[in-house]
Amino acid sequence: MIKNEELLIGIKDALPIVLGYLPLGFAFGVLANQVGMTVFQAGLMSLMCFTGAGQYIAIGVMQAGGAIFTIITANLLVNLRYLLFATSMVPHLKNVPPGLATLLSYGLTDETYAVAMTRYQNHEATTAYMTGLNITSHIGWISSSLGGALLGTFISNTDKIGLNFALPAMYICLLVFVVGKRSDALVAGISATLCLLFGFIFPSTMANMSNIIIATVIAATLGVVIDERY
């Protein structure tokens, strides 16, 4: 019974993520279609890769006539941040069998990470919760990609209905949730500033998202220093 409840909570927690994925996945489907991918290929890519930024990069490189190697290298860079995310999640996963935890980490994204870490602040991580959260989000991503690839030409502007603000709104809310003490708020502020600064000075870090990695490493280190002192 408790298992079912955890699964349901996971699914419920995934709904805002699905809402945010709608326009993003849809746009991916439309673009994939334009660049010559079939509906099946677009769906397969969303099923096997589940990397918003990475999939957009793939489309961009294909459009420019670039090589597979370029796409894969860029994707490696874009996804490196997950090494950090996944590692920071490991200490919370004590009650999830390692094999299952590994398998379920397939569904680790910026969004599922943020939602899960917020929950793990005061709840144990469970297999059922991870399953509900990650798989529901993934289904949302796949189906919105398929939707975009299928109906791409009919709906062109999700800005009109404000859906493009779903993910920013979610980040804002989760940021409010994860900030528990002063040092957390300081770390978030430092990281945000550094992220923008790096992105401004080295625009290429915006595209491969390495600015987030650098900013996070520096800000978390400063966080430890600040916390030790005060």
Partner: peptide
Amino acid sequence: FVAPAVLG
């Protein structure tokens, strides 16, 4: 501190 930093 990784989660607050990433979300920031």
